[in-house]
């Protein structure tokens, strides 16, 4: 029954999430990112730190993760840094807008392969990448936090649906041993 493809799905506690929109190539951008200890991630890349991760979302959009307790201050600092630099940018606390899940184990790639139209082979996706896509019928983003583990975020209102999808897909990988 493909026991060796066991997959664990865990709903994670909320963390701090900050949305940054702006010209990421601008002069002020490195300083702004350094407030949270990040540099600019490359296209479709994630930079991970102890406290969280900086996710590339689009050419003018990043999502910055941090500990839940430090988000309020980080937003204030970033907003005032923008004002000082007269930067045209949007910084918003979106910590409450999304739910987080960890998918881990030897069957983690397979689990997401059942729900997302993304090449999740080792050749197609690996640590350091982030992908915004859909999971079944709703939007999501995921990245790898280890060789066999993913973190996935989705909108808060559909967290029960997404959790159901993940648990359902993780249940049995029978017949997929060869992948």
């Amino acid at each position: 029954m493909a026991e060796h493809l066991h997959t664990e799905v865990t709903a994670l506690e909320p963390c701090g999430m900050i949305l940054l929109r702006g010209d990421l190539e601008a002069e002020w951008a490195p300083d702004l990112l350094s407030i949270m200890g990040y540099s600019l991630p490359e296209q479709r890349q994630v930079i991970q730190s102890e406290a969280g991760a900086a996710l590339w979302f689009s050419p003018d959009e990043l999502m910055l993760l941090c500990e839940a307790g430090s988000v309020a201050e980080a937003v204030v600092q970033m907003q005032s840094a923008c004002r000082e630099a007269q930067a045209h940018a949007l910084v918003a606390d979106i910590s409450d807008a999304r739910a987080r899940f960890a998918i881990s184990g030897p069957g983690a790639r397979l689990t997401l392969s059942k729900l997302c139209p993304v090449d999740l082979s080792e050749a197609g996706f690996g640590p350091g990448h982030v992908r915004r896509t859909r999971i079944a019928q709703v939007a999501c983003a995921f990245w790898m936090t280890g060789p066999e583990s993913f973190e996935l975020i989705c909108f808060r209102s559909v967290s029960e649906y997404v959790e159901g999808l993940l648990r359902n897909a993780a249940r049995s990988h029978m017949g997929l041993e060869m992948l």
Binding site: S58, R131, R132
Partner: peptide, 12 residues
């Protein structure tokens, strides 16, 4: 052309 993903129609 923005994120470089070869996206299938269900993402579009």
């Amino acid at each position: 052309p923005y994120c470089g993903v070869r996206a299938e129609e269900t993402e579009l």
